[in-house]
Design a protein around this nucleic acid. Sequence first.
DNA 1: CTGAAAGCGCTTACAG
DNA 2: CTGAAAGCGCTTACAG
Lengths: 339, 339
Amino acid sequence: MASTMHDVAKLAGVSIKTVSNVINDYQYLKPETRQKVLDAIERLGYRPNLSARGLRSGRTGVISLIIPTITNAYFAELADEVMRAADAKGLSVIIEQSNGDRDRELSLLTGPRTSMIDGILYSVLGLREEEAHLLANIDTPIVLLGDRIFNGPTDHVAMQNSASTRAATAYLLSLGRKRVVAFGAHSGEVIGSAGLRLDGYREALAEARVAFDPSLVIEVYEWFRSDGARAMRALLDSGVAFDGIVAFNDLIGLGAMRVMQEAGIRIPEDVAVVGFDDIDETRYSLPSLTTINPGKDEIARVAVQFLQERIAQGAHAIAPREYLAAFSLVERESTAVAS
Amino acid sequence: MASTMHDVAKLAGVSIKTVSNVINDYQYLKPETRQKVLDAIERLGYRPNLSARGLRSGRTGVISLIIPTITNAYFAELADEVMRAADAKGLSVIIEQSNGDRDRELSLLTGPRTSMIDGILYSVLGLREEEAHLLANIDTPIVLLGDRIFNGPTDHVAMQNSASTRAATAYLLSLGRKRVVAFGAHSGEVIGSAGLRLDGYREALAEARVAFDPSLVIEVYEWFRSDGARAMRALLDSGVAFDGIVAFNDLIGLGAMRVMQEAGIRIPEDVAVVGFDDIDETRYSLPSLTTINPGKDEIARVAVQFLQERIAQGAHAIAPREYLAAFSLVERESTAVAS
DNA sequence: CTGAAAGCGCTTACAG
DNA sequence: CTGAAAGCGCTTACAG
């Protein structure tokens, strides 16, 4: 059997309360008492039983991260940052994949496993903004990520979608591109990444007094590489002319680049491309992809910080907060000015 | 407060033991008793407290997956498969990133968090085979993944490294390639992915009676995209001629392809390339990458199955098992015979 | 600064 | 087929 606090207490000649005090860094301890206990812990190889601690204190030190899928590089990189931020605070992370399914998201937020986690980082994809009130009844602290729900009943850490694509579009226009495609729209979507990113695109056009051309708005419903490739094939078949692309994520931008190159289109000479996410791959694609760095690291750090504060204070103790991470445009070869 | 078994028992008019029996699917229950309890659970929205269950039973339903980093697509896809397999068995997965650091791996295997997990899937990178005996003293059930430790004191689920690169090399030779590069070697490594994959390469050469040329063995220490790109630049600078590449993972193969294409080398006409891992991206690269599918899904499924059996029977109750997953060669454009 | 007692919510023998 | 009791290993008031 693994040793318990009682064993440590006996060996050190103190009560188990004192052992608990040492483990929990209680400050008013005689240095020699503390040392005796530490020695006993060392000798016995004692490790606290986290289930017992969890049962008694209501805290397990585990948070969950709900994301659509880890196989999307953006979410893998986000998960990496979240795990680093959590680790720095002594928290473990359980990852749950929702596939963006609303019902699965809800069951992950309320299911039996929530009894052993302190809080949830919830990257919303399936739940709709009108349903956000459902979150108010959940007593597990939640911090929302992503762009589906704003002004909900919980903390929310988001990226600057509109401002980012506005900057990307303005950048292409500043390079002299005349017909810039918005690549990745979801028709009818108002909020959500696609809707917000389209807003930014339109804002930049308006600002530059360039007429909005609906034929340059390309729908791409899923945002995997293959979807981008497929949409680009259709665009080329349609015969619509264009010389710039603002892709609403990197993967569809990369898929589109591939199809254009097969068709003999040169990047950036014929078409300049900007992506969104700054996934690692964009540094090594051919050509490397100019993209928006949406501030994943900051999002992860702030989200874990917010969640920790919620856990300490109670799920709904303080008013919901909104936080927007800083973004930047990363210039690479796909928009390099031809020399 | 959340409701407890006592609340359910009171509402249903039974003892808490009966509630426990219902929850744990004990078979000898009167259907009507069972239904009364289920109704009470439903009405109260009762969810079992997993910390309490963990404390009492010693099982938490959580396993951990130790991998070097989730940002490597291979491990992200492996984690995806592991989470699916675990989910199907009602298990949650905590992911821990080791960065391949030996000391961190060991501390993850024995640290305080192990008190709240039932078992560990350990993708070994830092620990060396001669240290495998350290695993024998760990009382948490462990299933090893990867290619650093064979015949250790725990179950092990691995891919067929040598047989895979042997098939890949033989395939390139069968296409008429004369100078095939082994791309990704680690000099001096005997076991480990790089060593085993180099073995397979040599076996295929021997089998085809092609002389082994050390100048065609290219060292790539880390296996990220940028490392492959760097190594390929050096290879091109060296002037060594080649017409085929067996890349020891997809990422370095993709990095190498990019550099070759910049240099005007045509793939597959001038150089045919085979990768290893079958990550999603290989389907959409330009050209798409012929690669080895090492059987990630089978590895994940068997590993979770083995771990669950270990958890049920005790960490060292049955003799250690070795399992090799089936692999396949996936033919794509990077080796397509020129028409 | 440290101790003795209670109890978190389950499951596990043990009865019957 | 179901019940009453004990106890898993901690932390939390409460004393002193």
